[in-house]
């Protein structure tokens, strides 16, 4: 996986509902490939090569943030979280124009507030995200929005490799993951899908999730409302084994996932990813080795070696 591309993606402003800059980066990198690229009105980016049915690799573009709801008499901005949780924490935030804000929690511990460093900035409807940071050290990446952007970096890896082969493949980057997966189903509606792989960074904070950081890619056997079909799991395990990749298995029973949302519309998907530490916080961590292994696995799946 290209570190510079990952860094570019992690640094760009792209909260839920304002993902256009992230989409532009993805589209720019896809221009150099032989994939046909389209974008829809929701901001979803869809790339495809050849005729369907496609193996489809799907990830999201948006990151958590805040929206300014109101400025009070003292000049403090009242923020609505979309859906920044406790772990995102206090600190610097920026708007689309790069203006800086000091974000903090009100004394009730629930309400987000901010103070603008630029007089008059932060009108109602201004979107904010944590100020971006990116570090690479000892084979690991530490960055803001890392869990949200590593998927796109992996998809761009697949796009680069897809240039060489003649297999059909489709890559989808959708919007609105953090607002109940707003763009997901619409992004997939015109695709003839053979297999749908959802690429996610999977929280790996406690060490008891059944998978670990640095131990290789993860396949989710179940999510809250869906179960990965054993046929598909076996296919992925076989190709991982063929190319010498250790595959970890995970189960997630709480929280709505993309696979759950799709299952309700009758679309079966399988979730692949890698562990992410400090997930949902300002600076998350993933292991470079996990990214590399997952990238290889996705390329193997794109080639369709084991599909019948």
């Amino acid at each position: 996986m290209n570190k510079e591309v990952l860094q570019e993606l992690c640094r760009v402003f792209g909260p839920t509902g304002r993902e256009s800059r992230v989409a532009e980066i993805v589209k720019t990198h896809l221009e150099g490939t032989n994939l046909e690229v389209t974008a829809d009105v929701l901001g979803n980016v869809i790339a495809r090569k050849g005729d369907g049915p496609y193996p489809v690799f799907c990830t999201h573009l948006d990151q958590p943030g805040w929206v300014v709801e109101h400025r009070d008499k003292k000049g403090f901005l009242h923020l609505k979280s979309v859906p920044a949780d406790e772990k995102l924490g206090e600190g610097w935030a920026v708007d689309e124009g790069g203006n800086r804000y000091r974000v903090f929690k009100e004394s009730d511990g629930k309400s987000w507030r901010a103070e603008s460093l630029v007089e008059g900035e932060g009108e109602m409807g201004t979107f904010l995200v944590p100020k971006a940071e990116f570090e690479a050290s000892k084979g690991a990446y530490f960055a803001t929005a890392l869990a949200d952007r590593v998927g796109a970096a992996l998809l761009l890896d697949i796009a680069g490799k897809a240039n060489k082969g003649n297999q059909a493949v489709s890559l989808v980057c959708y919007t609105g993951r953090h607002l109940k997966f707003t763009g997901l189903t619409a992004a997939l509606e015109d695709l003839d899908i053979e297999r749908l792989y959802l690429i996610e960074a999977l929280p790996c904070d406690e060490g008891n999730e059944g998978y670990s950081l640095g131990e290789g890619p993860v396949i989710l056997l179940r999510t809250q409302h869906s179960v990965a079909p054993s046929l598909w799991v076996d296919e992925v395990a076989k190709i991982a084994s063929d190319i010498g990749i250790k595959l970890q298995k995970g189960l997630v029973s709480d929280g709505e996932s993309a696979a759950d949302t799709l299952a309700r519309t009758g679309i079966q998907a399988i979730t692949l990813g890698m562990g992410v530490r400090y997930s949902g916080s300002r600076i998350e961590r993933v292991e470079g080795s996990d990214c590399e292994a997952l990238s290889k696995l996705l390329q193997g799946l794109a080639k369709g070696k084991v599909r019948s």
Binding site: L42, T182, G183, L184, T185, A186, A187
Partner: peptide, 11 residues
């Protein structure tokens, strides 16, 4: 609107 955008990409 929330239901509709989940059916089709629309403004």
């Amino acid at each position: 609107a929330g239901a509709a955008v989940r059916v089709k990409a629309l403004g």
